[in-house]
Amino acid sequence: MIIIACADREWGIGRGGDLLFNIPEDMEFFKTATRGKTVVMGRKTFDSLRIKPLPGRRNIVLTRSESFSFEGIETVHSLDELFSLLENTPQNDVFVIGGSNVYRQLLKYCDTALITKVSAYGKADSFIVNFDKLSGWKKESASELKNRNGTEYQFVKYVRQ
């Protein structure tokens, strides 16, 4: 499984149910990486998509809500259900896309993290683990520093050792 996220300098990923930054190159990176793959998300992350599945992907929502149902979405209520559903799916075709609770639950099953690191402070209320300080993980590669309207960012790949 692969984690994919955009995080600010304090590893914040969202505020009030929305992303912290609107960086078109990050959105394009996300689309390219996940197109044709399976994306796993929590219900709040699904809600942030404005109540529609991501096109061209298999969408799975992990939620405690037994009543959650939506056309074009596969719903699971536990990790056991999720892994049963993913039984015949190659692990490198599964992207964990948020939110913070789902990242936390699935971190131990992931071996790669693709993080768009933004050098700004986003006043986040939702966070992901700091991969720079996470034992057993190392930075494998990083793009050159990019700038979008004064916001500096780079694409960083972390791998489990």
Rank of each mutant, 00 (worst) to 15 (best):
T112E: 14
T75E: 05
R64Q: 15
I51N: 14
A120E: 13
A33V: 03
I73C: 06
E28N: 12
W137M: 08
F30R: 06
L86W: 11
E140K: 14
N101Q: 13
D93T: 01
L85Q: 04
L62F: 11
G136V: 06
Q105E: 04
A142G: 09
G36D: 02
V61A: 05
V102G: 03
K117E: 09
R50D: 15
K117P: 01
K138I: 14
S141W: 04
Y109G: 02
V118K: 07
N147G: 06
L106C: 01
M27G: 08
D132E: 13
S141T: 12
R50M: 13
S135R: 12
L107T: 07
M27H: 11
P55I: 06
G42V: 05
T45K: 06
K138D: 15
Q91D: 11
K52P: 09
H77L: 10
L86Y: 09
G136Y: 05
W137K: 07
R35L: 14
K146Q: 15
M41A: 13
F46C: 11
F29R: 12
L145Q: 11
F70K: 07
I60C: 10
N130T: 01
S141C: 07
F29Q: 10
S67Y: 12
L49T: 12
G56V: 10
L106Y: 02
D93Y: 01
F83D: 00
N147T: 15
G136I: 07
Y103H: 05
F131K: 04
R43D: 01
L85G: 02
I115M: 07
I128Y: 10
L134E: 09
G98M: 07
I60Q: 10
V61Y: 02
S141E: 09
K146W: 09
S126Q: 14
V40M: 13
E87I: 13
I73E: 06
P90D: 11
V118A: 03
N92F: 00
L106F: 02
L107N: 06
R50E: 15
G136F: 08
V118Q: 06
K123F: 08
N59H: 04
N92D: 13
S48D: 15
A142P: 04
T75A: 12
N59V: 05
V61Q: 02
K108N: 10
F95D: 05
L134T: 06
F83S: 01
A142I: 09
L82D: 01
V61I: 05
V102M: 04
D47R: 14
D93F: 00
K117G: 02
C110W: 04
L107D: 05
T75S: 09
S143T: 11
I51K: 14
L134S: 05
I97T: 12
S84V: 01
R148H: 12
D80F: 00
E140V: 14
H77K: 08
K138L: 14
C110Y: 04
R35S: 15
G72T: 02
E140H: 10
L82G: 00
L82Y: 00
D47Q: 14
F70H: 14
W137Y: 09
L134N: 04
L79F: 00
S84Q: 03
M27E: 11
N130E: 04
H77Q: 07
Q91C: 04
F131A: 03
S65E: 14
